[in-house]
Design a protein around this nucleic acid. Structure first.
Lengths: 228, 228
DNA sequence: CAAATATGATAGTATTACTATTATATTTGC
DNA sequence: GCAAATATAATAGTAATACTATCATATTTG
């Protein structure tokens, strides 16, 4: 993707923050250093106190932006999904062939983010690593229904919905587009994690693009009608 | 599956416990009530102190069986994978057709456990709910490499390996059997969770067996060679 | 220039995830 | 059948976590 010279402001559901961190310097420091810290020590060991020490502010100041570290994680993941949604729109703009749209969509959803975009102060490489490892924890808990009512997963749902729509363009009769897309997204995260930490659970051969290839093939074959 | 009148002792890697909980009454109480409690309040809110109160023993006693609540979760998941492995062996015993073996395997890996087996004091329905929601947290963290060295994921790897072998029987040239199986296992857990809590991310129509059907079709189509 | 808002500095709290110690009860080995 | 080993109970203690509260000061805005 090309560098963008104009600034894009991503839309994040306000339910995940108290005060928009993009609106102040301190808020931006919280995001930048928060990402660094979670990427380094992991979500479990991450605390607002440690973050405060990094940015030279008391933890109480961090609490003025986010109710809890859960909400902070939700903010980061929401930001990521909004960014992906934006990238998806960009990637399929002016493309007419549904098949080509689908190919680009699957690429986007399954490939690793390795290059830093400088369109934002967010470190995207680190953020995407965080999302791959930690994002499922934001819904796999007992608060999921309550949080869902507040709308904290809207960004994720929107992206899944959009990608499912592209599946339907290619194969209008396919019954399970949402299942397929959420399987692909979460599966790709997992496979990248496994490749690094539990290789017995995956199949990385020589190279790099195995995950992408695997899900490409899987999606295309799955949505194509069989000649029984 | 038929009820079994003999007792089967599942093999659990000793790295996940200090003292085998199956060897004493207290140990069994810890498992039974631990499962009840995690199922009720979730892994995050679960503590050994609360568990101790339930079973009328001090938390120090629980610590004599398990080093930490992480290890306790690992014990439960290891037990579950060992049980699944046993059920898989049982389900494919004396079946010759690879396709039929595969069908039964996918069934086992993707369906919800709704019936309590009385071959054990473990509440399998609750345990499987716990595994669906919490098991990924046992590896999605910074300790994964260290824990992996200790062998705590061996049971899971073994099951994935066995199921991949069946894929290879059906389709010897297929390149990504492990990816496919781990995608199916974790994906099915997720889809069941979504169906209950985030239905926008899945496609449940009228009935019940959608997840099973979806993954069946997905696997069969994926491993079948295309006529290009 | 007053009023509102943002931040810093500091303190406090209930709970968590443990570890340690001692006493008593139970099992086992000879 | 008794000593020795082992298991459990009872209790206490600790550093860290995930917050909340208060007050003073600095900065922005109308």
């Amino acid at each position: 993707m090309k560098e963008l010279l104009h600034t894009v402001r991503l839309q994040i559901n306000p339910s995940v923050y108290i005060k928009n961190p993009e609106s102040t310097e301190l808020g931006k420091k919280i995001m930048t250093e928060g990402i660094n810290l979670i990427d380094k020590i992991g979500y479990e060991d991450f605390t607002f106190r440690k973050l405060g020490q990094k940015i030279g502010s008391p933890e109480a100041s961090v609490y003025r932006y986010f109710q809890s570290k859960q909400k902070f994680l939700l903010y980061l993941t929401s930001w990521y999904w909004a960014w992906m949604d934006y990238r998806l729109e960009f990637a399929i703009a002016n493309i007419n062939s549904p098949n080509q749209k689908l190919e680009r969509t699957i690429n986007l959803l399954t490939e690793r983010v390795t290059e830093d975009s400088n369109f934002t102060f967010m470190n995207i490489v680190k953020l995407s690593r965080i999302v791959f490892t930690e994002s499922s924890k934001s819904y796999l808990n007992k608060e999921v229904d309550e949080q869902n009512k507040q709308g904290v997963y809207l960004g994720y749902k929107q992206l899944v919905g959009k990608a499912s729509g592209i599946i339907m363009e290619v194969s209008p009769k396919y019954k399970y587009p949402n299942m397929l897309i959420s399987t692909v997204i979460e599966g790709a995260h997992l496979q990248h994690f496994f490749a690094e930490h539990l290789p017995k659970l995956t199949n990385k051969t020589n190279g790099n693009d195995d995950v992408k290839k695997f899900y490409h093939e899987l999606v295309l074959k799955t949505i194509t009608a069989n000649k029984k």
